[in-house]
Write a protein that binds this DNA or RNA. Structure first.
Length: 455
RNA sequence: GGCCCUAUCGUCUAACGGUUAGGACAUCGCCUUUUCAAGGCGGUAAUCCGGGUUCGAUUCCCGGUAGGGUCACCA
């Protein structure tokens, strides 16, 4: 059915929830391994539990994978559309005496009795080799004769995975290590339907900060939530890859291509790893630095408010503040926070502030005594210094013009006052940058405005 | 509880018998043309415990402890 020796992997989520980061990483490891080995990856939706599977989750999973850049070569297949296939194999093993139907009471309603199909457990030791864990051995006796189908038309997970993996020619099963204990019973089923055993690789789980299983109560776990928060897919990919795998070098910032080239199961960690947002943010910033300017601008535009985008000078000022924004954010979502904290508005309009703020905090005064009236004089001097400059000035010119004066009167005092007069903020870029962004006319206007504020 | 798996700084990890146990993020301090950010330099910080094996254990073995997974007519 497939060319011999070709690697076939699969990513089979069940559409009973959003694609969370743990599953996304499983998909990623499948993807990296498949690409590296020139194989094919199958995408299969395991929706045999019709009661819990929904179209909404299905769409979310597909969308998340697309956003992350994890592509697949076959699928999506849906198990709900393959009932005939399972039925065939079910009949086959029942006829062979390897499974049997049994009339039992319904666990949900003891008054009803109905038939289920149980697998006839050969009760033996099953040994398998795992790319990450090495040799693992189980005694299947305590599994008893486990149920593999609700009835002939309604097969259960363990049976459908095995049939599908066989039918689709899957050579490598790469999944979370919560499946380790499931593996022996699946091997038993494989042997019953005469399917070859795939190579297994069980990767460790991603943990919450308290080392428990990661779930919704630990904050954002859905891939699309990270998109909404303004993370770059390449950063999330990079981070997920590093969680449980490392290249053996000091390199930490990777593109998908680089990961594909370097990924290897021998370097996959055995223990679970805690998902740490701080490092993800750092990586996100690193990937932002790597972005081309135009792409960065497009991304910023998505998060800027309508108010700012409709400002008269917007298109003129945007290119100048882009680098300032880039320096200050680690996720695009933080642009919204900047706007809330008025860290952007002052580029476009006259800031509001109390005149006392023009006085720098004592620790920057270097023993010099200042009061508001001397600040007023300083601001006038600054105006006089800037007046002769050309309208279109850059920050180094302003700096050269003002620096000697600032040295003389006290850098902290002069520069703080100027910066505050231009921004109205405790924190902002330096006054030279600010002046060059808003231009000479506006700079003079704001200095004059500050002077007027002081009685 | 049975079975299975795991165990290096707070976090992600390097070391595949011999290292001052390395790096990154975070944190702390200092520096850089005032603040913030960015950047630079430096500091604090780890081999879970107990036995073996060995001239020598983070590394190999055994036991304990802790954590996780799994024991569904969910996947």
């Amino acid at each position: 059915m497939t060319e011999k020796g070709k690697v076939i992997t699969r990513f089979p989520p069940s559409p009973t929830g959003f694609l969370h980061i743990g599953r996304a990483r499983t998909a990623l490891f499948n993807y990296l391994f498949t690409r590296k080995n020139g194989g094919e990856m199958i995408f299969r939706l395991e929706d045999t539990d019709q009661a819990r599977s929904t179209k909404k989750f299905e769409d979310n999973i597909i969308e998340s994978l697309a956003w992350l850049g994890i592509s697949y070569d076959q699928g999506p297949f849906r198990q709900s559309e393959r009932t005939e296939m399972y039925k065939k194999y079910l009949k086959q093993i029942i006829d062979a005496g390897l499974a049997y139907t049994s009339i039992e009471t319904d666990p949900n309603d003891p008054k009803i009795s109905k038939e289920v199909i149980r697998f006839k457990n050969p009760n033996k030791k099953v040994q398998f080799s795992d790319l990450v864990r090495g040799e693992i051995e189980f005694d299947t006796t305590d599994l008893k004769d486990f149920v593999i189908a609700r009835n002939i038309n309604d097969p259960l997970y363990h049976f459908t995975v095995v049939v599908d993996d066989f039918e689709m020619g899957v050579t490598h099963v790469i999944r979370g290590d919560d499946h380790i204990s499931n593996t022996p019973r699946q091997i038993l089923i494989q042997e019953a339907i005469d399917a070859p055993r795939p190579i297994y690789a069980h990767i460790p789980l991603i943990l919450a900060p308290d080392r428990s299983k990661l779930s919704g109560r630990h904050g954002a776990v859905g891939v699309t939530e990270y998109r909404e928060l303004g993370y770059l897919p390449e950063a999330l990919i990079n981070y997920l890859a590093l969680l449980g795998w490392n290249p053996g070098t000091d390199k930490e910032v990777f593109t998908m291509e680089e990961l594909t080239a370097e990924f290897d199961f021998s370097a996959v960690q055995k223990g679970g790893a805690i998902f740490d947002l701080t490092k993800l943010k750092w990586l996100n910033k690193e990937h932002m630095k790597l972005m081309p300017e135009d792409k960065f601008e497009m991304e910023v535009m998505k998060y800027l408010s309508e108010e700012i985008k409709t400002e008269a000078k917007f298109s003129m000022i945007l290119p100048k503040i882009l680098p300032l924004i880039k320096e200050r954010i680690s996720t695009f979502g933080e642009i919204k926070e900047m706007a809330e904290k008025e860290e952007l508005q002052y580029f476009f309009s006259m800031p509001e502030y109390a005149p006392e703020s023009l006085l720098c905090p004592p620790k920057f005064r270097k023993d010099k005594v200042v009061d508001l009236s001397s600040i007023k004089a300083i601001l006038s001097d600054l105006k006089a210094l800037i007046e002769p400059l050309k309208e279109d000035f850059d920050q180094s010119i302003i700096k050269d013009t003002i620096w000697p004066y600032a040295e003389e009167r006290g850098r902290g005092i002069v520069l703080w006052a100027m910066r505050y007069a231009l921004s109205g903020q405790e924190k902002s870029p330096d006054p030279f940058t600010l002046a060059s962004v808003i231009g000479k006319t506006e700079t003079l206007k704001r200095l004059e405005n500050a002077i007027q504020k002081i009685k």
